[in-house]
């Protein structure tokens, strides 16, 4: 019962390959968990294929006309037949933290080797960076039961995906597979109750904490999203 999905515009950019690496990871991991978006993306890919490939009328490597000559084609075929298979990306399907084990959806499993060390933050919060060598900052965030992230707003957009568990903010409750995109001016206070929660989050600018006490925690923002 995933109720919070990426917009169709985001899915279109995902299928076109136009999102940043970090957003592609978060949206792709949602799609692994969401049969509805998976179907939508398949349909968008069909549309894109019609637009970019099927509509092209040149269909053969002609001897002397067209954009690819016969000799160019033959040369390339030779290179392809002599090429080596690229080594496959290694996937890891499980991660452990605090005695809990979590199954990683396919896309995240293929990036498990990019997950850094877990750091215990304040209270009941843990963070591990996902090193994508991207402009955005991407992290796994683990909230133990009864955890609370200080109220904050963002300078940029924050995308959060629930991998396992449930968390609440003042707007709603979010379960496995829910994808939440928050704009720059939206304030929120994520917290857990009796269940714990593992999320994947990406941010394209540092967080600003807004509530009194947590202003003191501002250095925390650089810890949280790095």
């Amino acid at each position: 019962m995933i109720k919070s999905h990426p917009s169709e515009a985001i899915l279109y950019q995902y299928a076109s390959g136009d999102l940043s690496a970090s957003m592609t990871l978060v949206v792709g991991t949602h799609i692994d968990m969401c049969s509805i978006c998976k179907q939508t993306v398949c349909e968008i890919e069909e549309e894109l294929c019609k637009k970019h490939l099927d509509s092209i009328v040149e269909t053969i490597c002609a001897p002397d006309k067209g954009s690819m000559s016969k000799s160019q084609c033959d040369q390339m075929l030779e290179a392809i037949f002599n090429s080596q298979v690229k080594p496959a990306v290694q996937r890891e399907d499980l991660i452990s933290l605090e005695g809990r084990r979590f199954n990683l959806p396919t896309t995240l499993a293929h990036n498990a080797h990019r997950i850094g060390e877990w750091t215990h933050l304040v209270g009941k919060l843990w963070r591990a960076p996902v090193n994508l060598s991207d402009d955005g900052q991407t992290n796994l965030i683990y909230m133990e039961p009864g955890a609370q992230v200080p109220e904050h707003s963002h300078k940029g957009q924050e995308a959060t995906l629930v991998i396992d568990g449930v968390f609440n903010d003042e707007h709603d409750a979010y379960y496995d597979g829910d994808f939440i995109l928050l704009d720059a001016d939206r304030k929120h206070t994520p917290r857990t109750a009796t269940e714990d929660c593992l999320t994947l989050a990406t941010l394209d600018a540092p967080l600003f904490f807004t509530s009194g006490i947590s202003r003191l925690l501002n250095p925390f923002s650089s810890l949280f999203f790095r």
Partner: peptide
């Protein structure tokens, strides 16, 4: 030209060998 750059094979694992049944965690 980024070092240790992420590749599309990681982000869209459509060419992974064992991609069947992955949706079903258990």
């Amino acid at each position: 030209k980024r070092k240790d750059d992420i590749s599309a094979d990681e982000l869209w694992p459509i060419l992974a060998e064992q991609n069947d049944n992955l949706d079903d965690d258990y």
